[in-house]
Design a protein around this nucleic acid. Structure first.
Lengths: 120, 120
DNA sequence: TCAACCTCTCAAGATTTGTTGATATATAAC
DNA sequence: GTTATATATCAACAAATCTTGAGAGGTTGA
């Protein structure tokens, strides 16, 4: 991932509504959610506001959309999330994995609900 | 990590100069770098501008500072980086690790220079 | 104490970003 | 084909953010 793309990604995640949308879609997985359902889960954002943020996120490559009948379904793009993390941590610690081990630990923890020390 | 802290973190990372500073300090490791050295590496940002962004990053908890004589040394706070990633990916995929595995792969790759598929 | 050095603070102006309300497009049902 | 549903677009205003330039705080060594 190049710098400009990473900047767009972090900027997209730096706004309350958008961060909530991404987290919602990360939980939802590949199936995704309809725009309306996202708006409901977020508790009543106006459609124009929601659309503004969804467009912003899609343009940043963090989410993607597909049409299903009247609905537009959004889902998280995990490759972009992975790219952001890799960009941030690339060449970390000058090749001393022990230093950034906690970062890796935090992530594997998220993927395995049983070890929930960091879930609270 | 709570939402407001995560938002502050992503906002801090969403600006070109600040993202470069963080990546520089991630590479530098716990030893860190003096403010002046950071400014030089970034290629001539004015001291007030540099100080503005360093303060912003420190306030977001992404970096920390210590004084050494005339110099102020900044270093990355890896726990905060870990927290951001964990916050973003928490409860991902409704408990199906296979879906977000690429994210974990991207990170472990960063920590082990030998597997450099994502380093280019 | 003085001079040199390193870094921070402040105020003003320019730029970017987010919200609102009205309107437009697309699909589905009758 | 008309109406209802779902979502996107646009323009205007409000608010947050970044840069610049001037100046001030500490620290060191003579």
């Amino acid at each position: 991932m190049e710098e400009q793309r990473a900047l767009a990604g972090f900027a997209a995640l730096s706004q309350e509504t958008r961060l909530r949308i991404v987290r919602l879609l990360v939980k939802a997985g590949p199936e995704g959610m309809a725009a309306g359902a996202i708006g409901e889960a977020l508790g009543g954002a106006s459609t124009s506001r929601l659309s503004f943020h969804l467009t912003h996120l899609e343009h940043a490559g963090l989410i993607r959309s597909r049409r299903e009948g009247r609905f537009i379904i959004y889902s998280a793009v995990f490759a972009t999330l992975a790219g952001l993390i890799a960009f941030l941590m690339r060449d970390c610690c000058d090749g001393h994995p022990d230093i950034c081990a906690p970062v890796a630990a935090a992530l594997s923890c998220s993927c395995e609900p049983s070890k929930d020390a960091l879930h609270g």
